[in-house]
Simulated scan of single mutants.
Amino acid sequence: MISGLIAFTEFGLLALLAALAGRVVRLYREEPFMVAGALAASASPSPTASRTRPHSRAGEPGGPGTADRTELFTQLHILIGLQERDCRVQGLLLCESPMAVRLYAAAWLYGAACALSLKSNRHSRALAAMVAGIISRKTGIRQTEAQEALGGLTHSAVLLACYRAGLESAEFWQRHQFVPRESSLYEAITSNAFI
Rank of each mutant, 00 (worst) to 15 (best):
I2N: 02
G4D: 12
L14Y: 10
L14R: 13
A15Q: 13
A15N: 13
A18D: 09
A18K: 06
L20Q: 14
G22D: 10
V24M: 12
Y28H: 14
Y28V: 11
E31P: 13
P32N: 14
F33R: 14
F33G: 14
A36S: 13
A36R: 14
A38L: 13
A41F: 07
A43E: 12
S44D: 15
S46L: 05
S46M: 05
S46Y: 05
T48V: 10
S50Y: 05
R51G: 03
T52V: 08
T52H: 04
S56A: 11
R57F: 12
A58E: 15
A58W: 08
G59E: 05
G63A: 01
G65K: 02
R69T: 01
E71L: 03
E71S: 07
L72I: 08
F73P: 03
H77Y: 04
I78R: 08
R85C: 04
R88S: 09
G91I: 06
L92S: 07
C95A: 14
E96D: 15
E96H: 12
S97M: 14
Y104W: 04
Y104P: 08
A106V: 13
A106E: 12
Y110C: 02
A113V: 04
C114S: 12
A115E: 05
S124T: 00
R125E: 01
A126M: 02
L127C: 00
A128F: 00
A129K: 04
G140P: 03
G140S: 04
I141D: 14
T144N: 07
T144V: 06
E145A: 12
A146G: 13
L153H: 03
T154K: 13
H155L: 07
S156T: 09
V158F: 00
L160T: 15
Y163V: 00
A165I: 01
W173A: 11
P180C: 05
P180N: 02
E187N: 11
A188W: 03
T190Q: 11
A193L: 06
F194Y: 11
F194C: 13
